[in-house]
Amino acid sequence: MSIKLLFKLLGIISLIAVLMVSNAQAQKRKGDFGPFRKHKPQSKKKDKNLIRFENTQWWLGAKFGGNLTQAKPFERFTPFSSTSNFNPDFYNKQYQDFRPAGAFSGFVITFFHRGFSASLQPNYRRHRFLFSNDYEWLDLSNPNLNLTLNYQYAQSLDYIDIPLLFRYDILRSKLRPFVQLGGYYGQLINANLTLERTGIDRASGSTSPISEPELEVGNPNYFIKTSLGLLGGIGVNYDVGNVRLSLEANYRYGMNNLANAQNRYLDNRLASIGYAPDNVKLRSFEISLSCLFPMRFLISKNFKSVD
């Protein structure tokens, strides 16, 4: 499934690249010079085509970064139900926000025109979040006899993510800050749940710590494939020669429930240990660094990119 998706994605990227090239060639055939335009510094008045040429740029590059994710549950589920405490929230999972860190990397294709940009940034990303449950069993006739357990879950979700961002450059200097807003579409590639069980057994003759081997299971069927959301953020571009470095910080706002309601109790092993996925939406902060290369140049001594 994931290989098919990768092919799908590569197909789209290739399609975009082929189209860009064919478009440029078509313009060249029409008398337009496509990505290259002769630079005439001596002319006092730039012709209209040159001005139009200089106002537009394509950037292509790579991007990588890290993210911190918050899982926002909006409906709770658990296989456990208490016969001594009928509060439905009794077994709610405790989520730990924005930890641990995840990462992502991918491509950037940006079209720039007069301070505005549209940027398609396909990437592979991993979101990670933590949640836990605590359990306690007591012997009422002898309170010294008890067992406490802590189940600490770490969930990771891997996506092929396709954000489309619209960006405005606030300044047009060498160091140019920008704001951006957009949306994303993600396809789940893999999901893993890691469980660490610890506790204290005071019922077997002495106080004995419990530390069971870590359990790791793939649980992609507990989540739907699709992830949709909005993202926005700020950043700054810095040009080093013809290469542009871009540092940006974004906030991603997941719009849809990621849990697969059809498969909530799919795996008996996970139900036995009290796991059923809540309905959650993801929120995340991310910081990334991009290295971009211009696709259109003025023909001059140094092949200066248009800006």
Binding site: F80, Y135, D139, Q262
Partner: peptide, 28 residues
């Protein structure tokens, strides 16, 4: 491509149709 997604699977199903439950009690 984008619309070939499975958002419908995230819609809550009738929770009475299928479930697994363990009825715990904190009494040792």
């Amino acid at each position: 491509f984008l619309l070939a997604c499975d958002l419908k699977d995230a819609k809550e199903v009738d929770s009475s149709l299928s479930f697994t439950k363990i009825f715990d009690n904190d009494l040792f």
